[in-house]
Nucleic acid binder design. Structure first.
Lengths: 249, 249
DNA sequence: GTCAACAGTTGAACGTGTTCAAGAAGGGCT
DNA sequence: AGCCCTTCTTGAACACGTTCAACTGTTGAC
C-alpha cells in the first residue's frame, strides 16, 4: 500500500506503465504490474537523485527512503547500484536517436549528417556531464555489464550503430563499397572516442568537445572521399583486413 | 617497538631497504628511513596480494595484517587503496622502458622499432592482465589521480612518451617534419588504445592484442610514409591543426 | 636531563554497497 | 473457508574503504 500511494504521489514524468486509473482500493488494475511499478519508481527516483546529487553522493539508502521502500527492495529489482545506470543508458540512447532525426531527415551531405548526429549526442548528454564522469568508471570495467562492449549493452550498442548506418546510407557521399559496410561501426567507434574525450573534457560547456567534433567531421569526410583514391587502396585494404582479423575471436 | 619487531619478523621477500643489521638497540641506521621502510613494506605487501588474489579481493585489512601494521597506518602513507596502484604504475613503466631497450638499441627500421616497443609493453603487463582489468576502472575515472591523463600521472606519462620519441628519433624513417614533432604523442595515444584493447581482450594469452599490434604497425608505418605525399598534405595539415586546437584549453 | 614538537602508529567507529532469512500479500486451487 | 505457492517486501547484519582522536617513540633545543 505504501508503495502504491507513494508511486501515485511521485510525479514520474515518463510513465511507461499503463494509465494508473486507480479509484481507491479498486483492484481492477493488472496485479502483475505491481512489480513493474515498483521497479520503475525505484529507477526514476534513483536517476533523479543521481542528477540532483551525483552518482557517488547518492546512497542506496537514500534512494530507498526517497522511493518509500526498503533498501533490500531495490536489490530485488536491480542487481547492484551500477545496474541502475543501465536505465539511464537506454533512455539517453533513445533521446540521441530522436534528437538526430531532424538532421537525418533533411540533410543529404555526409559531413552535415555526421556533424548533426555527433552534436545531437552531446546535446542529449550535456545535462549529465558531471554525473557521467563519475559513473563512467563503471562502464570502463570490462567485466561490467555497463561496458559499451558488453553483451548486456548489445541492444543499446546496436541501436547506436544503427544511427550511424543511417548517416551513411542516407547520404549522398560516394563511398568505397567495401568501406561502406564497415563505416557505421567505425563511426560508432569514433563516437565512443568523442564520448571518452567529452567525459574528460573540463572546459566550460565542454567547448573543446564541440571543437573536436567540428574538426573531426571534415577530416572524416575527406578520408571517406579519399577512400576511392588509387594510391590509398592498399592502405584501405590493410585497414579492412585488420578489422576483419580482430573481429573473429 | 611493536612495529620494529613485527616488521623484522615479517618475511618480506623483496627488501628494497638497506640490510637490516640490527643488533639490539644499535641505532646506527638512519632514523629517517623508518617511515620509508614501512611505506615500502606496505606497498610490496599490497602489490603481492593484488597479484595473488586480485585487486578487489584484497582488502585493506588483509594488507595491513599481512604487513603487520594497523590499517590506519596504510592510510598514513597512501591516501587510498587506489593510490597503492600508482606504485604498480611507475614500476611497470620502468619495466617497459627496460624491456624496450634492446630493440631500440639494435634496430633502425621504424616499423620494427615500434613493433618491438609495443610487444614489450604487453610482455611486461601480461602477468597482471586479470588484475589490471579490475583496477582499470579506477584509471578510467577522469578525476582519479590514476587516470593516464591526470596531473599525478604526468611523470609516468612523460616517461612513456619519451619511449616513443626514442622510437621515432632513432629510426631511419623519413617523416614529415611537422608530423615528426607530434608523432611521439600520437604513438603514445595509440599505445593507450592498444592497452584499452588489451584490457578488454579475453582471448587466450591475449592473442588478439598481439594480432592487433602486428596489424597496426605496418599500417602506421605506411601512413607515416604516406605523410610526405602531396595529395595528403592538406589532410595532414588538418589533423595537425585539430590537435593544436584541442590542446590549447 | 627536561621538555616540546613531530613523525609514526594504533584500533575503534562511521557510512557505504550488498546479502539474507524472515515475513507479508495476494491468487489460484479444493 | 482453508491452504499452498509465488511474488514481493522488509530491515538487521556483514564486510568493506576510510577517518580520527589518542597514543608512542624519537629528535633536537635549552
Amino acid at each position: 500500500m505504501t508503495c502504491v500511494t507513494t508511486a501515485a504521489a511521485d510525479p514520474a514524468d515518463e510513465p511507461a506503465a499503463p494509465p494508473p486509473a486507480e479509484g481507491e482500493g479498486a483492484g481492477e488494475k493488472p496485479r502483475r504490474a505491481r512489480g513493474e511499478q515498483t521497479r520503475l519508481l525505484i529507477l526514476e527516483t534513483a536517476l533523479r537523485l543521481f542528477r540532483e546529487r551525483g552518482y557517488t553522493e547518492t546512497t542506496m539508502r537514500a534512494i530507498a527512503k526517497e522511493a518509500g521502500v526498503a533498501v533490500g527492495n531495490a536489490y530485488y529489482y536491480f542487481d547492484s547500484k551500477e545496474h541502475l545506470i543501465q536505465g539511464f543508458y537506454d533512455r539517453n540512447q533513445l533521446a540521441h536517436r530522436v534528437a538526430s532525426e531532424p538532421v537525418l531527415a533533411n540533410e543529404k551531405d555526409f559531413a552535415a549528417r555526421l556533424r548533426g548526429v555527433l552534436h545531437a549526442g552531446i546535446d542529449v548528454n550535456e545535462p549529465y556531464h558531471s554525473f557521467a564522469a563519475t559513473f563512467f568508471k563503471s562502464a570502463a570495467e570490462p567485466s561490467s555489464p555497463l561496458s559499451p562492449f558488453s553483451r548486456e549493452s548489445s541492444p543499446a550498442r546496436e541501436a547506436a550503430i544503427a544511427i550511424f548506418r543511417d548517416v551513411v546510407e542516407g547520404s549522398s557521399a560516394k563511398v568505397d563499397p567495401e568501406l561502406r559496410k564497415e563505416l557505421p561501426e567505425l563511426l560508432w567507434l569514433s563516437w565512443m572516442g568523442v564520448v571518452l574525450f567529452w567525459v574528460y573534457d573540463r572546459s566550460p560547456d565542454q567547448r573543446r568537445t564541440r571543437r573536436l567534433i567540428d574538426g573531426i567531421v571534415p577530416l572524416a569526410d575527406r578520408l571517406v572521399g579519399l577512400s576511392r583514391l588509387r594510391v590509398l587502396r592498399p592502405a584501405l585494404r590493410q585497414v579492412l583486413a585488420l578489422i576483419d582479423t580482430i573481429r573473429r575471436d
